[in-house]
Nucleic acid binder design. Structure first.
Lengths: 189, 189
DNA sequence: AGATGATGAACAATATAACGCACAATTTGA
DNA sequence: TCAAATTGTGCGTTATATTGTTCATCATCT
């Protein structure tokens, strides 16, 4: 079950109990069956936009208030809880430590490259920038035909709106951290 | 198809075209199949919260920006486009002319009561207020045992957090307009 | 204690969201 | 001018959202 559904689960339950409503009351108020409401509160369902909308308007609250999550002051992210995105047959493993947040407009990844690992990346949107800290081993990147080798302890920053490729040309494991900044390309209206 | 889905339909299409993305591009970006994206843009589908979430994060925009609708400066609401809520076997017809909006916190209804029509209403939340303008005929309301008769041209306001019942005790059609104000009962956290 | 009513969870049935594939229309480009 | 690629739509299939109903648990009377 997805992250977003957990959020609405706890929010909805909190709001319902705050207002001393039973599932049946809420059902009459929103026009959504109480079984569905129960499943949503338990995080067992992936509701439809229409359903979420009916719940929000039935409760006379904004849809946004169902999907906001009040983040704790501090929180620990365990690597073991993060499912990595793998490329190059498992030799290239991306751990999204701090996923993209449209307000902060950046994300933070840890990446492991086995010896010989290679990964190619399509150009991102204009002015997207990647910041790489090499933690262990040696990191090689090719941008627009130019090749850069970066050693442990060093760092590199580059615009990612061109084709680029990552390599670990050494014979031992390479670990890097990457901060990607995405400018807000959507121009409203 | 519901209102909210039309909104995301036009918003999504606008954003996609603004960024010069094909359905296939957007599909790769979001992990949602292009057939689904096409259906959403055409308003033919009622997407899942998970899907909307994937689209928003894939585009690096807030989920809110997909569900906001920039209302036109002015707009005409046709009675014929509104499907009434009927009670008392069709003798009591409610037309939601301006549906509830959580920002404005009120809604505006037109109600028609055939001769002899009666409708009972559960108590609303505390401090909810109803404002009635009698346009035609005669309107009778019973609140907490007290009975009020209101004639055309007159008006009545009352707290709706008690049991109350509406009647048309006359022998001709009665038309009223009702403005219901809902205080914000949800206390965050 | 036992009956009654209310509440949330479990189950079965149906409607439909979501996907992969194929097709038609349009654009590209040589 | 004709292939080749790209784009959006349509269709069949699968997974699952949503509903109505049943069931277990608990509180409240008499």
């Amino acid at each position: 079950m997805d992250d977003i559904n957990r959020i609405v689960a706890v929010n909805l339950k909190k709001i319902r109990e705050k207002n001393k409503l039973s599932l049946e009351n809420l059902s009459e108020l929103t026009g959504v069956s109480k079984s569905m409401l129960g499943q949503i509160e338990r995080g067992e369902s992936n509701p439809t936009l229409q359903t979420i909308w009916k719940i929000a308007t039935g409760l006379k609250i904004s849809l946004t208030s169902l999907i906001v999550s009040t983040k704790p002051e501090a929180e620990i992210i365990n690597k073991s809880n993060i499912s990595p995105i793998v490329e190059d047959e498992g030799r290239f493993r991306i751990y999204p430590m701090f996923p993209f947040d449209y307000e902060k407009r950046f994300e933070v990844l840890n990446i492991e490259l086995d010896p010989g690992a290679a990964s190619y990346s399509e150009p991102h949107d204009e002015n997207t920038e990647e910041h790489v800290l090499v933690q262990e081993g040696e990191f090689t990147i090719k941008i627009n035909g130019d090749t850069y080798r970066v050693k442990a302890g060093d760092a590199i920053r580059y615009r990612a709106d061109k084709d680029h490729a990552y390599y670990n040309l050494s014979d031992k494991l390479t670990k890097i951290s990457m901060v990607i900044y995405y400018p807000n390309i959507i121009i409203k209206e």
